[in-house]
Computed example of a mutant assay.
Amino acid sequence: MTRFSCFLLAFILLLAGCGRFTPPVEPIPTEVTPPDGDGVGSSSQNVFEYPLFGGIDDLLAGDGWVRIGWETASDNDFEPEELSYRVYLALDSGHQDFSIPDLEISSDSNVAFIEGLANGTAIHAVVRAVDPLGNEDPNEVEWAATPNPVRYVNHATSPVGGNGLTPETAFSSMGQAVGESIPLEGVNFHVSAGLYLENVFLFSGMFLYGGFDASFAPDARNGELNLTQFASLFSTDLVILSPGHLLTGIDSISLSGQGIVESGVVAVETWARITNCQIFDVTIHGVEFRSDFFDGDTVDGTLRGCVIEGCGGEGVVIDGIGNILIDNNQIRSNLNEGIESQWIRSGFEQESRIEITRNIIRDNGDEGIDLDCA
C-alpha cells in the first residue's frame, strides 16, 4: 500500500509539473542603441607651429569616385576658417608625394569629392591641414578605398525584383546583394539604415558601407543618425571577410551580438579595413585577424575609429602572420584582454608588424594589451 501511494504521488507531481512547463523561447534580436565614443584623435595640450589635425576620419568609395571626410583642424594662432587642407593620393601605401598635393580644399569644406578614378584600383589618401603661413601638419593617417561598381541595399524594399543598380531597385538583404554580385571583380555595397537580421560573408573585393538614408546621397551619409545595424539568430560569426588580396571590409555599421553570435568580425588571410563601426555584446571576440602560419599566409588589416565593447572574450585577437594597424579606437569592458595575440609569427620570408596608436583601452577583465610573439 505504501509503495502504491508513493507511485501515485510521484505520478500526480509529474502531471502537475508537465502542466506548468513552458518551452523556452529563442531570443529575437532587436535594434539596439550602440555604444558611443572614439579614440584619442588629435587631442593634445602641446603647442605646435602647425595646425593640430587628426587627419582623415571617413573614406567612402563609389563607382569611379571617392569621398574623403575629416574633422576641422585647430590652430594656436589662426581661426579654423583661416585654415585649408591638402589632399595627397597614391596607388601604393606610403607613397604619397608630400611636396605636391593632388588637391587643395578651402576652409569652408571638410570634404573632398574626387571623380574620374579607375574602378578596381585602390586609392591611398592622406589629408593635411595648412595655416596661412604655409605651416603644414605632418600627419600620415592613411586611408584606403577602391572605386568599384555600386550595389544598393535597403531592408525596406521588396525582397523580389530588385537588382541593386539604383536606390529604387535596391536589394532587400545583404545575402541577396552578395549572391548577385559574385561575378563582379569588386563591388561597393551602399546600405541604408535599418536592422538586418543576417550574417554577412564578403568575398575579396567586396566592401560594405552603411550610414545611408533612403536617398543614398553621399553627402547625407551619417553612421550615427542613419544606424545600419546587423544582428543574427545564429551563433556563428556575424561578419566574415574571406581570403584574397583585394581590399575587403566594412564601414559605419553596427554589429550587435546580443549575446548570441560568437565573433563580430573575422578577417581571414585578406586585406581588411574595419572602420567607424560599433561591435558589442558578442560571446567571444569583437574582431579577429587570422592567417595560417604553416602555409605562410598573411593577413593585412586596419581597425580604426571603432568601439568594441562587452565581448565575452577578447576585444581584438591576432593570430598568425599579420600586418595590422589598430588606430583611434575605444576597446573597453571586454571580459578578457582588450587586444591579444594568440601568437604573432614571422616566417616563410614574411614578417609581422602590429601598430597600436591613439586608442583608449580600458576596463577590460584582463590585460589591456597582451601580445605573444613566436
Rank of each mutant, 00 (worst) to 15 (best):
H95E: 15
V150W: 09
G19E: 10
M174S: 08
P149H: 10
D363M: 07
G62Y: 01
S173A: 09
N154I: 01
F98E: 06
S232T: 15
S256D: 14
V150D: 12
P243G: 05
R128N: 09
G315V: 10
F289G: 05
D36W: 00
P132F: 00
F289R: 06
D297I: 00
L59G: 10
G162F: 00
E269S: 15
F53R: 07
H285C: 03
E288L: 06
L15P: 00
D251N: 13
G17E: 12
P147Y: 11
G186W: 02
S93P: 00
G313Y: 06
E140S: 10
R20I: 13
P80R: 06
D292Y: 10
E314Q: 13
G120T: 03
L52S: 14
H95W: 11
E31S: 15
N139L: 04
I260M: 08
I321N: 01
L371I: 15
S346E: 12
A156F: 04
G322T: 11
N328G: 00
I339L: 05
E140M: 07
V187W: 05
G312T: 06
S263E: 04
T283A: 09
R128M: 09
A118F: 08
G161I: 00
W343F: 13
V316M: 07
V299F: 01
D281K: 05
G55R: 03
V150I: 15
S232L: 08
P35H: 03
P243M: 01
H124P: 03
Q229P: 02
V130W: 01
P138C: 04
E26Q: 12
V316I: 15
F189C: 05
V153R: 06
C6S: 11
V200R: 07
N148C: 14
V126E: 13
G286M: 08
V111W: 05
I250N: 03
F293I: 09
L117H: 06
F53C: 08
G94Q: 03
V130Q: 11
T228V: 04
T302M: 12
N199Y: 00
I182W: 09
V187R: 02
D57K: 04
C18T: 08
S242F: 03
Q229S: 12
G315A: 09
V66F: 05
E82T: 06
P243Q: 11
A118V: 14
G347S: 07
G249A: 07
I28T: 14
D92T: 14
S107T: 05
Q330A: 12
G41M: 06
L195K: 13
V265C: 07
F201R: 14
P34Q: 02
L197W: 04
G186E: 03
T275S: 15
I360V: 14
D237I: 02
D372S: 14
P27S: 10
A122Y: 00
L91M: 05
G259V: 02
F230E: 14
G175A: 06
S158R: 09
A16Q: 11
I182G: 05
D319S: 11
